[in-house]
Simulated assay, not measured.
Amino acid sequence: MIKFYNRKTKEYEIEKVAGDKYLKWVYTSPVGKSLTELFIKKKLFSNLYGRYCDSKYSAKKIDAFIKDFDIDMSLCEDPSVKFSNFNEFFIRKLSKESRPVSTDKNILVSPGDGRLSAYENIDLDNIVQVKGFTYSLRELLKDDKVAKEYEGGTCLILRLCPTDYHRFHFVDDGICGETKKISGRYYSVNPIALERIPKLFCENKREWSIFKSENFGEIIHVEVGATCVGTIIQTYTPGQKIKKGDEKGYFKFGGSTTILFLKKDKVKIDKDIVYQTSLGIETKVIMGENIGRIL
């Protein structure tokens, strides 16, 4: 059971997890854990499933998925579009009206839809994954020089469920550098896995870049792959001027994670998000939602 905080209702809700029984089995049972280490965490499994989701045979899953998880298709950029496979549906674009973005330069917005955790005044060697599990920014980036610049800064972890909108965006105007790619495993990023795989974010395939934002300084964007996420697609152009809310990229099928690192004294995250994080609870947010203010 995964509990999250709904900012609108100010109440806790239980997440509807796609493949809940499967996740519990592969990460908690002896046979499942062995299968995960032998096959599921490896690139081949995610590639094979990714090919299936790109095939016409996967289209039959779409209607049931929409119904089971109450997905509002009226929010799509084109609500009448017919998807030829599951991945086309999964990476669907939403209308600008459904995800408004504040033009106030003092406001930090969420880079995507998902469940958000926020950590302030971070210790580079002990960034929280979940309670009891931490990792090092140096290990995550494999770049000591860059990591050192973010001591005492802010870390935002946005976990995307398979039911979420799976495109991620820029949080400010600015220019983004080249993407650096780090190969790795394909563990699930669901809390069930996070509570059992130490330093999972540093184990998984990931990509990162430095975004030189106009109002919040240099921000590290990290995209973490996961089970069945054989591909992270970057759609932005390095070195090109970016507007707040512009798309950075998207994940193909599977739950995934976007992590942002901001330098010390650049932003103050909203109190409710920080408080819920201190309790070990994620806060549900949508792309473009206000989550903090400039310092």
Rank of each mutant, 00 (worst) to 15 (best):
M1A: 04
Y5D: 01
R7F: 08
T9Y: 05
Y12T: 05
E13F: 13
G19T: 02
K21V: 07
K21Y: 02
K21D: 14
Y22C: 02
Y22K: 15
L23I: 08
L23E: 04
K33N: 10
K33F: 09
S34F: 13
S34Y: 10
L35K: 01
E37L: 11
K41L: 00
K42N: 15
L44W: 10
F45G: 09
N47H: 14
L48C: 13
G50S: 15
R51H: 09
K56D: 06
Y57H: 03
K61S: 03
I62G: 13
I62P: 15
F65P: 05
I66P: 04
I66V: 09
I66F: 06
S74R: 11
V81M: 04
S95K: 06
S95P: 09
K96W: 00
K96Q: 05
S98L: 13
N106H: 10
L108E: 04
L108D: 12
P111R: 07
G114F: 12
S117C: 15
S117G: 01
A118W: 02
Y119L: 11
V128F: 11
G132F: 04
G132K: 10
G132W: 08
F133Q: 10
Y135R: 09
S136L: 10
L137A: 14
E139A: 10
L141H: 08
A147H: 08
G152N: 09
G153E: 11
R159H: 04
R159K: 14
C161W: 00
T163A: 09
T163E: 14
H169Q: 07
H169E: 03
I175Q: 08
K180P: 01
I182S: 01
G184V: 04
Y186Q: 05
Y186S: 13
P191C: 04
I192E: 11
A193C: 12
L194E: 11
E195K: 12
E195D: 03
F201V: 02
E203K: 12
N204L: 00
R206M: 07
E207L: 02
E207G: 15
S209G: 03
I210P: 14
K212M: 02
S213W: 06
G217M: 12
I219G: 01
A226D: 02
C228N: 10
G230D: 15
I232V: 12
I233A: 08
Q234N: 07
G239R: 08
Q240V: 02
K243T: 13
G245M: 13
D246R: 00
K248P: 02
K248Y: 01
F251Q: 06
F251G: 02
K252L: 04
F253A: 06
G255V: 09
S256L: 00
S256E: 00
T257L: 07
F261T: 04
F261E: 01
K263S: 05
K266F: 03
K268H: 01
I269D: 10
K271F: 10
D272F: 07
D272P: 09
Q276F: 07
E282T: 15
T283Y: 06
T283M: 13
K284P: 07
V285W: 12
V285T: 13
N290F: 01
I294D: 06
